[in-house]
Simulated scan of single mutants.
Amino acid sequence: MPLRLIFMGTPDFAVPTLRALHAHGHEIVAVYTRAAKPAGRGMKLQPTPVERAARELGLAVLTPSTLKTPEAEVEFRSHKADASVVVAYGMILPENILNAVPLGCFNLHASLLPRWRGAAPIQRAIMTGDAESGVMVMKMDVGLDTGDVAMTDRLPITDEMTAQDLHDALAPRGADLMVRAMAALEQGRLALTPQDEPGVTYAAKIGKLEAKIDWTKPAREVLRHIHGLSPFPGAWFEVEIDGAPVRIKVLRCELAKGSGAPGALLDDRLTIACGSGAIRLIQIQRAGKQPMMAADFLRGTPLSPPLRVV
């Protein structure tokens, strides 16, 4: 029989999993997500991507501000779910909630645990130069991404991948993985394996100070830093245009030939020297403007040596 599931998630990354579980016949008895927040020019309340998808599917939506009250536990138990599926919910589940469903709570995490436990696994994997990433289904416990792992799907990381690219590749893979995990759970054959503690690393939230590009680093490290922060918050540098400093985010780049002082412009195609080697900018975003291809930017704002960026 299909499982009775509580789904808990918030951003775009969680939507494919919600839709896939619903499409495969599981009964989604409640969808928990974060409350709508004001956004846009009019600062109107904007529901989360998961809330929009859930309402489209005709599912009940709850947006509690906390799960730590007795009332929250009573409501959670009242759904009489077999299990809960959690995908980037954004709220810590206390132990009484984890124990409130008989088969447990299962989290989809976008890393190869125990590497990159925590808030920013996709960004950290790219920024650190990892050769691969992936998604894992984990049975949750009270620790931070410390639970036993049920299933894994691996994906190579190339130098061309941005955080958005990796996010978009992992989301549907994660949905398929969770569907398979719930099918195995339904049949009583979901095997769990403890994480290997010696391999633990933590993916801390991205800090604002990390976004400035350090041109003294080798070209590949600069590229991975840029791609790991694309599109948000966006790695940036400043360059003087018409006598004033202008901040420019770099959204996509590639390794290039050439060398020079770190930050030196090497040609009129936005090739910039790093500590060793160079990168060429492909897509950028000037402060207050829309993203654009570097070639289009240069048509309106030609830049050439001996200019340097900082």
Rank of each mutant, 00 (worst) to 15 (best):
I248D: 08
R189N: 14
K212A: 04
H225S: 09
T271I: 03
I226M: 04
H227N: 15
R280V: 00
P245A: 02
G275L: 02
T216P: 02
Y202F: 14
Q187A: 06
V200C: 00
A256D: 10
G199Q: 08
L270D: 11
T216S: 05
G199I: 00
A273T: 00
A261N: 14
R252E: 15
H227V: 00
I213Q: 08
G277H: 08
D214V: 08
T193W: 13
V239W: 12
L229V: 09
A191W: 07
G275H: 10
P198T: 13
R247G: 00
I241L: 11
T271M: 03
A219V: 12
Q283N: 05
G207F: 09
H227F: 02
W236M: 00
E238A: 03
E197L: 03
F232E: 14
A256V: 00
H227S: 07
L266P: 04
M182Q: 08
I279M: 04
I282H: 06
L229N: 06
E240A: 10
E210T: 09
R180E: 12
A256E: 14
G277N: 10
G258L: 03
K208M: 00
A273W: 05
A203D: 14
V179L: 01
T193V: 04
D268C: 02
R220E: 14
V200E: 11
P198S: 10
A244R: 15
R224S: 10
C253H: 02
I213K: 12
W215V: 02
P233K: 03
M178D: 07
I206N: 00
G234L: 01
K205W: 15
P262T: 13
E240F: 09
L209S: 08
G228C: 04
S276E: 15
A191N: 10
T271Q: 07
A261E: 15
P262E: 14
E210F: 00
W215T: 09
H225M: 04
C274E: 11
A211Q: 05
L270R: 08
E197M: 10
L190Y: 10
K205L: 11
L223V: 05
L265P: 02
A203M: 07
E186S: 02
W215F: 08
C274T: 11
S276H: 06
G243Y: 09
I272A: 08
G260D: 14
T193A: 02
R180K: 10
E221G: 03
I248S: 04
A244W: 13
L229C: 00
L266D: 15
T271A: 03
E240Q: 13
S276G: 09
K249R: 13
L192P: 00
K205S: 12
V179K: 02
W215E: 11
V200W: 07
C253Q: 07
E254I: 01
L270W: 04
Y202V: 09
V246G: 02
S276P: 07
A235F: 03
P262G: 05
I282E: 09
I279V: 05
R280D: 05
R252P: 02
D214E: 13
P233D: 13
G275Q: 12
G207M: 13
A184S: 05
Q283P: 01
E197Q: 11
G199C: 08
G258E: 15
R247A: 06
G277P: 02
A264C: 03
L209K: 15
Y202P: 07
A235W: 06
S230E: 13
E221T: 06
K257R: 15
